[in-house]
Simulated scan of single mutants.
Amino acid sequence: MSTPLVAFLNRLSAQQQHYQYRLPSRPDAGRFIDQLMRLLFPVTQDCQSATANAGETYQRLNDQLLCLLHPLQPNLNTRAEAVALRFFDELPAIHDNLLLDAKAIADNDPAAISIEEVIAVYPGFYAIAVYRIANVLLKAEVPLLPRMLTEYAHGQTGIDIHPGATIGASFFIDHGTGVVIGETTIIGENVRVYQGVTLGATHVAKSLAQKKRHPTIEDNVVIYANATILGGHTVVGHDSIIGGNVWLTESVEPHSLVYHQSHIDVRPILQQG
C-alpha cells in the first residue's frame, strides 16, 4: 500500500474512537424486520422459515435482536437481554394493532381482495408494521435502531414514518409513495392517508428538537393525495376531510372540508387548414 493510503486508513481507525455510538449493520436490521414479519404473519414464507416452527423462529429472532442491540449496549439504560424480553412481551399487542390496520385497509380499499393480500403486498401496511415495531423499541429507550428500522421500510416502500410518531388504531395508508410523517405527529384512530401526504414542521431549527413540531390529526380524518399539513400547533379536527394538494398550517374544526381550488381550461386544438 502507498504511504498516503496507509495514513488514510490509520486516520479512519483513529476516528472510530470518537464516535458516540456503535451501530448494528443495516442489512442485519432489515433481515430481522422481514423475519419478524413472517413470524407475525405467516401468509408468506421463505424456504428457511417454511421448515421452522414458531419456537425455533422466535429463538432465532431473539438472537438476532440481541445481536442488533449488542453494539448499542453502552448507550442502553439496561441490559440488552432485558430490552429483548420487554420487546417480545409486546409482540401480542403489536400483532393485534396490525390486524386492525390490515382490516382497515381491506375494508376501505375497493381493490383489496383480502387481508392476506394486504399483509403480503401493500407497502402502506408494511411501513405501518415496521413503525409499530420500531416504536416499541423507541419506548424502551433504544437509540438509533428504531430509526434504522423505519428507514429500512422507507427504502422498501417510499413511506417515511418516524418511529417517534404517535399513531392510533386502524391506520390506513393508500398507495403511500412519498408519505412523510414527522417525529412529533399525533394521529388518532381510523385515519386514512393517501400518497404524497406530508405531516411535517413549519420550522426545522435544531433548537426546536424537543418541541412538538408536527401536526395532530384527530379520529376519522381523511387526507387526500399530496396534501401538506405543517406545525406543532396545527390540529385537524375529527371527522374532517382534507382534499388533495391542500397546504395547511392552521387548525380546522371537527367535521371540516378543506380543499384546494384551481382553475383548469380545456380548449379544442385549432386545426390548421
Results as ranks from 00 to 15, higher is better:
residue 20 Q to P: 05
residue 25 S to D: 15
residue 27 P to N: 10
residue 27 P to L: 12
residue 27 P to A: 11
residue 27 P to E: 15
residue 32 F to W: 12
residue 35 Q to R: 13
residue 36 L to D: 06
residue 37 M to D: 09
residue 43 V to H: 09
residue 44 T to P: 02
residue 45 Q to I: 14
residue 46 D to W: 13
residue 47 C to H: 14
residue 48 Q to N: 09
residue 48 Q to H: 12
residue 49 S to P: 07
residue 51 T to L: 12
residue 56 E to K: 10
residue 57 T to K: 08
residue 61 L to S: 03
residue 62 N to D: 15
residue 62 N to M: 13
residue 64 Q to G: 06
residue 67 C to R: 15
residue 70 H to A: 14
residue 72 L to Q: 06
residue 76 L to Q: 02
residue 77 N to C: 10
residue 81 E to H: 09
residue 82 A to L: 12
residue 83 V to C: 01
residue 87 F to S: 00
residue 89 D to I: 08
residue 91 L to P: 14
residue 93 A to D: 15
residue 94 I to G: 02
residue 96 D to Y: 15
residue 99 L to I: 15
residue 99 L to K: 04
residue 104 A to V: 13
residue 104 A to E: 15
residue 107 D to Q: 12
residue 109 D to S: 06
residue 110 P to C: 08
residue 110 P to H: 08
residue 113 I to K: 09
residue 114 S to P: 13
residue 115 I to A: 01
residue 117 E to G: 03
residue 118 V to W: 12
residue 118 V to C: 08
residue 121 V to M: 14
residue 121 V to L: 14
residue 126 Y to R: 02
residue 126 Y to F: 15
residue 127 A to I: 11
residue 129 A to L: 06
residue 129 A to V: 09
residue 130 V to C: 01
residue 134 A to S: 05
residue 137 L to A: 01
residue 139 K to Y: 10
residue 141 E to Y: 11
residue 148 M to E: 01
residue 151 E to W: 06
residue 156 Q to G: 00
residue 157 T to C: 04
residue 159 I to R: 00
residue 160 D to M: 08
residue 164 G to N: 06
residue 166 T to G: 05
residue 168 G to D: 08
residue 168 G to Y: 03
residue 171 F to V: 10
residue 172 F to L: 03
residue 175 H to Y: 13
residue 178 G to N: 04
residue 179 V to Q: 00
residue 179 V to T: 07
residue 180 V to G: 00
residue 182 G to D: 08
residue 182 G to Q: 06
residue 193 V to E: 03
residue 194 Y to K: 00
residue 194 Y to E: 01
residue 195 Q to Y: 13
residue 195 Q to E: 09
residue 200 G to F: 12
residue 202 T to N: 05
residue 205 A to C: 02
residue 209 A to F: 13
residue 209 A to W: 11
residue 215 P to R: 04
residue 216 T to W: 11
residue 217 I to W: 04
residue 217 I to V: 14
residue 219 D to E: 13
residue 219 D to S: 05
residue 221 V to A: 01
residue 221 V to N: 02
residue 226 N to K: 02
residue 227 A to H: 04
residue 231 G to F: 10
residue 236 V to Y: 03
residue 236 V to M: 04
residue 236 V to L: 05
residue 238 H to V: 10
residue 238 H to W: 05
residue 239 D to Q: 12
residue 243 G to N: 05
residue 244 G to A: 11
residue 248 L to W: 09
residue 248 L to S: 01
residue 249 T to G: 04
residue 251 S to C: 06
residue 254 P to F: 02
residue 255 H to Q: 08
residue 257 L to Q: 07
residue 258 V to D: 05
residue 258 V to Q: 02
residue 259 Y to N: 01
residue 266 V to G: 02
residue 267 R to Q: 13
residue 267 R to A: 11
residue 268 P to F: 06
residue 268 P to H: 08
residue 269 I to D: 03
residue 271 Q to G: 07
residue 272 Q to L: 08
residue 272 Q to T: 15
